[in-house]
């Protein structure tokens, strides 16, 4: 449930809980700066449903990245409950969290975040290697994933020989290769020019529509927000708005 929604239609209330990929209940996160505890999240209640194409917006310091980190199992909450695809993340060790990220989460970061010594295809195969997928299947799936994001023929290029937009497409393909329960994208268009950013938004929307992949995107970008079907506002570590939208 998301108590701070502005609209009468509360997305979390409309869908049954077993359709939820992510459930956050009274989620809190405090960071310590010297002797002072700085709250980053203050009792967030949120549910993300299968197939959502949602944006998470808010001013700098509102807690977007912190919330994405919590959902992605990159950090432990200070208090509250967080369940991803039925797993309570508080009960997982660092190793278990790594395994959960490998199997269930796809990440697209603001910077392109590809491994520089690997080619585009190898960056995607890296996830499959960690999953223990066999060589032939890895190659086929990586090539198919690159074709899916419009990068056919660039499989053997290293990141330094790809444009920013191409690198971000590789990152999207990598995020999707493990068929994740949810893709978390933190400012995915922040470093891209207008045209490239538009292309990336189209791509993610298309993948959501075709494959039903759930996206939760932390962003300031109005174009991304405009394309989302659900928009969540975060202010001072609290959900200040949550609306379903027709795009």
């Amino acid at each position: 449930m998301c108590p701070d929604t502005k609209e009468a239609t509360t997305p979390g209330a409309d869908a049954p809980e077993n359709d939820s990929i992510v459930v956050c209940r009274n989620l809190e996160k405090h960071y310590r700066q010297g002797a002072i505890q700085v709250p980053a999240l203050r009792g967030v209640d949120l549910e993300i449903h299968r197939g959502d194409f949602a944006t998470l917006a808010g001013p700098s310091g509102s807690g977007k990245t912190t919330l994405l980190n919590m959902i992605g199992g990159l950090d432990y909450p200070s208090a509250g409950e967080i369940i991803v695809d039925g797993q309570d993340l508080r009960a997982l060790t660092k190793s278990d969290l790594a395994e959960m990220r490998l199997r269930k989460i796809g990440f697209v970061f603001q910077a392109y975040n590809l491994i520089p010594v690997l080619t585009a295809a190898e960056n995607i195969e890296f996830i499959l290697r960690l999953q223990g997928v066999g060589s032939r299947e890895r190659h086929e799936r990586a090539r198919a994933a690159l074709a899916d994001v419009g990068l056919e023929g660039l499989e053997d290029r290293r990141p330094s020989h790809l444009s920013g937009g191409q690198q971000q497409r590789v990152a999207v393909a990598r995020a999707l290769i493990n068929r994740p329960a949810i893709v978390l994208a933190d400012e995915p268009t922040a470093n891209l020019d207008t045209q490239t950013a538009g292309g990336l938004i189209d791509l993610m929307a298309d993948l959501n529509a075709r494959h039903g992949t759930t996206f939760l995107m932390g962003t300031h970008d109005a174009r991304v927000i405009a394309r989302s079907r659900r928009h969540i506002e975060l202010t001072d570590g609290r959900i200040s708005g949550d609306e379903l939208r027709n795009t």
Binding site: L74, S95, R101, F107, P116
Partner: peptide, 15 residues
């Protein structure tokens, strides 16, 4: 940065 990324992508600390 890269080691953090690898862990974010699902690489275990022992790897």
């Amino acid at each position: 940065h890269e080691f953090g990324l690898m862990q974010a992508l699902g690489m275990r600390p022992r790897m």
